[in-house]
Simulated scan of single mutants.
Amino acid sequence: MATTAPKKAVLYRMVMPEHTCPYGLKSKWQLERHGYEVEDHWLRTKEQTEAFKTKHDVKTTPQTFIVGERVGGNDDLTRFFGGHVPAKDETSYKPVIAVFSMTALMALAVSYAVLGTPFTIRAGEWFIAFSMCVLALLKLQDVEKFSTMFLNYDLLAKRWVPYGYIYPFAEGGAGVLMIASAMTWLSVPVALVIGTIGAVSVFKAVYLDKRELKCACVGGSSNVPLGFISLTENLMMVAMALWMLFAPAALSMAH
């Protein structure tokens, strides 16, 4: 019975006392994951690395060779196996989806811990408040970059630049107060104002002016496109503010 010869690949990567190339580790993992036996060559010094680059006329390592043909670096290897490598300016909603997914799970977990069941009205409130806090945290990592990107589309920030610096603090502060159900006299108007201005700004930029911009919602270094999800973030703040403003009165009337 004939046996299939193992697939083989030759990998050259930097493994030095002060530095192990992370892309080399990823390339080795990709090859092994796809069933390749890896002939793993370590470039242990800068001199060895530069000599290798010169010999093969390449600018970077790692480099993978399969059946004697150079595949290339880790991104090239990803493409070789049919994977997607994002382009430099490619936009994605993944950061926002990751934030909302985690804050939703956090809200369900807290609801279960405090109220004994994950699916409660309070969980919905916590979800929005947690989302506000996490989004504010991402903006606060680099307020300067956030404010610069924010100025591309926010109507108030364009007229009054300091608003771009104030916004993440206002969003985070309102979120914290909403989690605690404290000082609603402050958190509700803040969330209502910044949410309304944000929603109008995004709607104008995207749906009226038809501009293709990046959203500053997860910080000034993101590649999240300005669009429906950005609008949803602001509408969630407005909805939360209105709920906290009118729900207690409605519930008291019901009783």
Score class of each variant (00 low, 15 high):
residue 197 I to C: 04
residue 197 I to R: 05
residue 197 I to F: 14
residue 197 I to G: 06
residue 198 G to R: 12
residue 199 A to Q: 03
residue 199 A to M: 05
residue 199 A to Y: 03
residue 199 A to W: 04
residue 200 V to M: 14
residue 201 S to D: 08
residue 201 S to P: 03
residue 201 S to A: 10
residue 202 V to Y: 06
residue 202 V to R: 07
residue 202 V to S: 06
residue 202 V to Q: 08
residue 202 V to I: 14
residue 202 V to C: 09
residue 203 F to H: 05
residue 203 F to K: 04
residue 203 F to M: 11
residue 204 K to M: 14
residue 204 K to H: 12
residue 204 K to E: 12
residue 205 A to L: 04
residue 205 A to Q: 07
residue 206 V to E: 11
residue 206 V to L: 13
residue 207 Y to G: 04
residue 207 Y to K: 08
residue 208 L to C: 12
residue 208 L to D: 09
residue 209 D to G: 08
residue 209 D to W: 09
residue 209 D to V: 05
residue 209 D to Y: 09
residue 210 K to V: 06
residue 212 E to G: 05
residue 212 E to P: 01
residue 213 L to P: 05
residue 214 K to C: 13
residue 214 K to L: 15
residue 214 K to H: 15
residue 214 K to M: 14
residue 215 C to V: 03
residue 215 C to R: 00
residue 216 A to N: 13
residue 216 A to Y: 07
residue 217 C to D: 11
residue 217 C to I: 11
residue 217 C to P: 02
residue 218 V to C: 04
residue 218 V to F: 05
residue 219 G to F: 06
residue 220 G to S: 03
residue 220 G to T: 01
residue 220 G to V: 00
residue 221 S to R: 06
residue 221 S to D: 13
residue 222 S to E: 02
residue 223 N to S: 08
residue 223 N to M: 09
residue 224 V to A: 09
residue 224 V to T: 15
residue 224 V to Q: 11
residue 224 V to D: 03
residue 224 V to E: 10
residue 225 P to E: 09
residue 225 P to R: 14
residue 227 G to V: 08
residue 227 G to N: 06
residue 228 F to Q: 06
residue 228 F to I: 13
residue 229 I to A: 11
residue 229 I to C: 00
residue 229 I to K: 00
residue 229 I to T: 10
residue 230 S to W: 03
residue 230 S to L: 11
residue 230 S to K: 05
residue 231 L to D: 06
residue 231 L to Y: 10
residue 231 L to S: 03
residue 232 T to H: 00
residue 233 E to F: 10
residue 234 N to W: 03
residue 234 N to L: 02
residue 234 N to D: 12
residue 234 N to P: 01
residue 234 N to M: 01
residue 235 L to K: 00
residue 237 M to A: 07
residue 238 V to F: 01
residue 238 V to W: 00
residue 238 V to D: 02
residue 239 A to Y: 02
residue 239 A to C: 10
residue 240 M to N: 04
residue 240 M to C: 05
residue 240 M to A: 05
residue 241 A to W: 04
residue 241 A to C: 09
residue 242 L to R: 10
residue 242 L to Y: 04
residue 242 L to C: 11
residue 243 W to P: 00
residue 243 W to G: 07
residue 244 M to W: 13
residue 244 M to E: 14
residue 245 L to A: 15
residue 245 L to R: 08
residue 245 L to K: 08
residue 245 L to N: 02
residue 246 F to R: 11
residue 246 F to S: 10
residue 246 F to N: 07
residue 246 F to D: 05
residue 247 A to S: 13
residue 247 A to G: 06
residue 247 A to D: 08
residue 248 P to H: 07
residue 248 P to M: 12
residue 248 P to A: 06
residue 249 A to F: 15
residue 249 A to I: 11
residue 249 A to H: 15
